[in-house]
């Protein structure tokens, strides 16, 4: 880095600035010695540290300027599998295929919306079908049956695969492309979840290009993608009135219950983060809401039209 305009003391100061911000590398005795060796060191360190912090604050205040790629985090710590990146060429080919002007007609968007508690099957012109869960909304296009924009709620996509025209779904900014598929997309308040029952889905083909195979899911929260393993047969189980969870927060479970049962379900903050593992039989719960209490380990209180989940007294 000989052409670097930073002078030698600044250069060392910059290294210390990086090092002392990293708990794994910080050496406070060594740093003190360096500071004491020459009184100008402290000023150089201030300048360099401030230069970094200014740049970082600036980026934080304008997060869109770096438009970060989603970060993929493996969710199962015990066995770390290598990330399944797909080669750039394949991803590029997919993007190309999506972008081809095959559906050259003008877009003719239409919206399908379900009430809470309702489930509707939406057949598409290409033989694919979308099962829309309660309280959901999706925009489709008569001119291009291979495109859908999820706006709210949850949907199970049963896609007739066509290599030349992949089916694409926009799930609140998360781009999904099918690779021959049955997959479920759920837009929660906090996060988006994509789970694959059959075939495979490419998440964000333009960016991270994360491939999900059957039995895999990804949770997207902000820019973070967390990969999960799911029971493939449980994906879209809500069609048969079954909701399966593996460690979901009660607040997320309540959100689903409200959507599927068509009544408000609220959670006390003290139990909202409680994790739930198991399957909820919606029909049984409809008949007897008290079942929920035993299942979720909470007290269920009737609260006007809906239910309140509370800590057990």
């Amino acid at each position: 880095m000989s052409q670097d305009p930073v002078n030698p003391i600044d250069d060392v100061a910059l290294d210390w600035a990086l090092r002392m911000a990293d708990p794994a590398r910080a050496d406070w005795d060594g740093f003190t010695d360096w500071l004491e060796a020459n009184p100008v060191h402290a000023a150089a360190y201030d300048r360099m540290t401030a230069a970094l912090l200014d740049a970082e604050d600036s980026l934080r205040a304008h997060p869109d300027v770096i438009a970060p790629e989603p970060v993929i985090v493996e969710a199962e710590p015990p066995r770390r599998r290598p990330l399944r990146w797909i080669g750039g060429a394949v991803a590029a080919a997919l993007v190309g295929a999506v972008g081809v002007g095959l559906w050259s007609e003008r877009p003719q968007p239409y919206v399908i919306e379900t009430a809470a508690g309702e489930v509707r099957r939406v057949p598409l012109a290409d033989g694919s079908a979308i099962m829309l869960a309660g309280g959901s909304r999706i925009t489709l296009d008569h001119a291009d049956p291979r495109r859908a924009v999820m706006e709210r709620g949850e949907a199970l996509f049963q896609v007739r695969h066509d290599d030349r025209h992949p089916f694409s779904v926009d799930a609140r900014g998360l781009a999904l492309t099918d690779l021959g598929t049955v997959f479920d997309v759920r837009l929660g308040r906090r996060m988006t979840r994509v789970a694959v029952a059959e075939g495979a889905v490419m998440v964000n083909p333009r960016g991270a290009a994360l491939r999900l195979d059957a039995g895999q899911a990804v949770l997207a929260e902000g820019n973070r993608l967390v990969r999960q393993t799911v029971a493939a047969e449980a994906v879209g189980g809500w069609r048969d009135g079954r909701l399966a969870y593996d460690g979901a927060a009660l607040s997320d479970v309540a959100e689903d219950l409200a959507r599927f049962l068509g009544r408000p379900v609220a959670v006390r903050p003290s139990v909202a983060g409680q994790a739930f593992r198991g399957t909820i039989d919606l029909n049984a719960v409809r008949r007897d809401p008290r079942l929920l209490g035993a299942l979720l380990n909470v007290a269920v209180r009737e609260d006007g039209q809906g239910w309140m989940l509370e800590p057990r007294g």
Partner: peptide, 12 residues
């Protein structure tokens, strides 16, 4: 380090 250098130079 490379990124920090570039940003320090930009700051200059």
């Amino acid at each position: 380090r490379m990124a920090a250098h570039a940003l320090a130079a930009l700051k200059d």
